[in-house]
Amino acid sequence: MTAATPLLAQRRLRPTRRPGAGAGGRGQLVGGLALLAALLLAWQLLPPALGTPTYVVPVLSDVLAALVDPAALPRYLEHGAATMTEVLLGLGIGVVLGLGLALALAQLPRVYAVVFPYVVAIESIPKVAVAPLFVIWFGFGLPSKVVVVVLLAFFPVLVNAIHGLRSVDRDQLDLFRVNGATPWQIRVRLMLPAALPQIFSGLELGVANAMIGAIVAEFVGAQKGLGVLILQAQGRMETPAVFALLIILSALGIALNVLVRTLRRVVISWEPRPGR
């Protein structure tokens, strides 16, 4: 009775890793490092060669000196912690609100039809422009920064999550319905996992937005934060310090992005790795 089966069962098990991806990856790594070295070298050698003043473009060694300056380190830590508090707090609130509203709206098509045009309208406003208003409303402390970050992180999460939740495969929906699934089961066991890739795409955008929101809010009015340090360094024409702070901000942004992408790989373990 099993005569017909083994033939098909054994063949075409898809390899989980692409052959040769490792070798290609190594080649790319070497190329990438070479490019980085060339750029850093150019940074060190080009400004003096072109006669560019140090306060316009400082050479790499000056920037590095400012970055590892022991006197500046406590300031970097204190203000960096302030900025990251704003970012993480705002991001957390924004993601919870965005996801919650998306789940609610995806279940209520009529409410969705009424509300969504407003969401789109608000989304197209350059939201950092309201940061001065929030300083008036919430003061120069932490709350006004967090509110700006929430506003910026909230919308990409909301819009992506709604889109993911609403684009569930028709056959999968029929499969659940034919087996008598309740609306709750369809929501939790079908729509939510199916929407996870889109939810994470929204989260990646939200993280990038959150960093922008925190810095802009600090520019507008704050006592603490890396944005404040940038303004102070600018005021003293300490361009190497400005560059050092930009490097710190970039590193924090990259770290957050890597964190989200790692989380994505862990949570969505069934998702094929993006091909190179």
């Binding site: 495969d169 056959d171 999968q172 499969l175 079908l190 373990s269």
Partner: peptide, 9 residues
């Protein structure tokens, strides 16, 4: 169904 319609997760 025409597609296998398995849940990938």
């Amino acid at each position: 169904f025409q597609k296998a319609t398995l849940l990938p997760w």
